[in-house]
């Protein structure tokens, strides 16, 4: 992609995504549904992500400084009033797995000074490590705070011999000064898509899963292809009346749980969360 092409087509890069019916022809548009009612906050998804994507364990001290590298994290929220005043205020937390929302109009993309992050045809927000110069502008611009910066040269210390043998060869081991983020397990998707292309078909629903979706014990995370109208994800998006290309979702009735986080920022995220069902009467 040349610079002149980038300048000429700037509008389509920035503002025309997404528009109505954009993915009708595209073979793939990866999306996710996370059911917060099913999430038990067990962190299995986080552990799976660490294993799959060569994430370094930074230790307590650096974690405290905000240098953690978890591409997916479990956020905890407490209700107001009663829960906070009980004998065990830690009880009653609600969990929310937070990972890169793969926004269609991603705030991180236009600010990169070197074009290291861009949008893929599959609707993913990509990060090219060897192009990244570490300005951290993308992280500053991300409303979900799901971009992580390598403050240290982790390959030197995070996997002492023989732990380096656990590294996933399909994923780059990032070194100091590089921004990184959730990729929706691109290495798995790519392997599946290549195999499917050789066989002259598109990937079936559930054929490829992200590591987090695969590890989730309660199946709270559903991953799939939104372009495939019969996929579980596409059906859930439709049932929950969430439209990718709208930033205000109109619900036909009360009790439809699907929502996207910080939609009013016009980011058009690819992840739908299903609100937790609470019995307020009891």
């Amino acid at each position: 992609m040349s610079l002149s092409n980038l300048i000429q087509n700037w509008n389509s890069f920035r503002t025309r995504r997404p528009y109505e019916g954009q993915y009708d022809d595209a073979p793939y548009k990866w999306a996710m549904v996370i059911d917060l009612d099913a999430c038990i906050g067990c962190n299995a998804c986080t552990v799976a992500c660490y294993a799959e994507n060569n994430l370094p364990v930074v230790g307590k001290e650096r974690f405290g400084k905000g240098q953690a590298m978890h591409w997916i994290r479990i956020e905890r929220y407490w209700g107001e009033g009663e829960a906070m005043q009980s004998e065990f205020p830690d009880h009653g937390a609600q969990y929310l797995p937070m990972l890169c929302q793969q926004c269609e109009a991603a705030p991180c993309e236009p600010v990169c000074p070197v074009g290291a992050t861009h949008h893929s045809p599959d609707g993913l927000n990509t990060q090219v490590y060897n192009r990244c110069v570490g300005s951290r502008y993308c992280s500053a611009n991300c409303p979900y705070k799901v971009r992580y910066f390598n403050w240290w040269n982790y390959p030197d210390r995070a996997w002492p011999n023989p732990l380096e043998l656990q590294l996933n060869p399909d994923v780059t081991v990032r070194s100091k000064g590089v921004m990184e983020k959730c990729t929706f397990c691109m290495q798995r998707l790519r392997a599946g898509m290549d195999k499917a292309k050789t066989e002259g078909r598109i990937l079936a629903d559930g054929e490829v899963l992200t590591a987090c979706a695969q590890a989730c014990p309660t199946s709270a995370i559903t991953f799939g292809n939104l372009s495939d109208k019969k996929s579980k994800v596409a059906r859930t998006w439709k049932n929950q009346q969430v439209d990718l290309s709208k930033n205000v979702q109109e619900k036909s009735e009360e009790g439809i749980r699907g929502y996207r986080i910080l939609e009013d920022l016009n980011t058009y995220p690819s992840i739908v969360y299903l609100e937790r069902v609470r019995n307020l009467e009891a």
Binding site: H118, S120, V128, Y129, N130, D170, Q187
Partner: peptide, 9 residues
Amino acid sequence: PNDCWLCHK
């Protein structure tokens, strides 16, 4: 294809 993530991982 010319997608970055086709070759970069």
